[in-house]
């Protein structure tokens, strides 16, 4: 049974990604991308990595995608943006993602309810992940923090010209 769930989620992930790549409308593509990430999260959960699944949803489907949505909303200002929002309410635009998301949700509920929801291997709890990360791999965490610093400083420098400074304008 769990195997079937796994393959169902995999099919959803693949088809959602293909749909995301082929949509001409950025907002629609984004919805499919979020679905694809959710499906991957379900895959992680079924393979015994609930922590990775939670992170996938929180960080990728949550935080990063919200940023994308913000950017697209800001790019689509004006009349065309309004029409776009109206067109988003058509049933043909949300029915397929809706079905996919419902399927994933039902899958997840079913898997959570089972005592053993594994398709392979052993489950790794968040506590074990934490112990590994701050035990043998603590230097990797430190290096990743330096990596983020580099990204942050670079993004600040390159995005700086778009920042409107108070005082310099008036």
């Amino acid at each position: 049974m769990m195997e079937t769930l796994f393959y169902l989620a995999a099919v959803i992930a693949l088809s959602a990604t293909i749909l995301a790549l082929t949509r001409a409308n950025a907002a629609h593509a984004l919805i499919y991308l979020i679905l694809s990430l959710l499906a991957v999260a379900v895959l992680f959960f079924l393979m015994g990595a609930p922590f990775a699944a939670a992170l996938e949803i929180l960080i990728y489907a949550g935080a990063i995608m919200v940023l994308f949505v913000f950017v697209i909303m800001m790019l689509n200002l004006g009349k065309s943006g309004e029409e776009l929002e109206r067109s988003g309410l058509h049933a043909r635009n949300w029915i397929i993602p809706g079905i996919m998301a419902t399927l994933l949700f039902v899958e997840l509920m079913y898997a959570v309810e089972q005592t053993s929801s594994l398709t392979s291997g052993t489950a790794v709890s968040p506590k074990e992940v934490g112990l590994e990360l701050f035990g043998p791999y603590v230097l990797a965490v430190e290096l990743a923090s330096m990596l983020l610093l580099a990204g942050l400083v670079g993004a600040y420098h390159l995005g700086r010209r778009f920042i409107v400074r108070s005082g310099s304008d008036d």
Partner: peptide
């Protein structure tokens, strides 16, 4: 893991350095 982290730390700083005189 350290290979990847080192590589990315080096490259991400380089992306910004290449575009530095903007």
């Amino acid at each position: 893991a350290s290979l990847l982290l080192g590589l990315e730390l080096m490259s991400i700083s380089l992306y910004a350095l290449i575009a530095y005189p903007d």
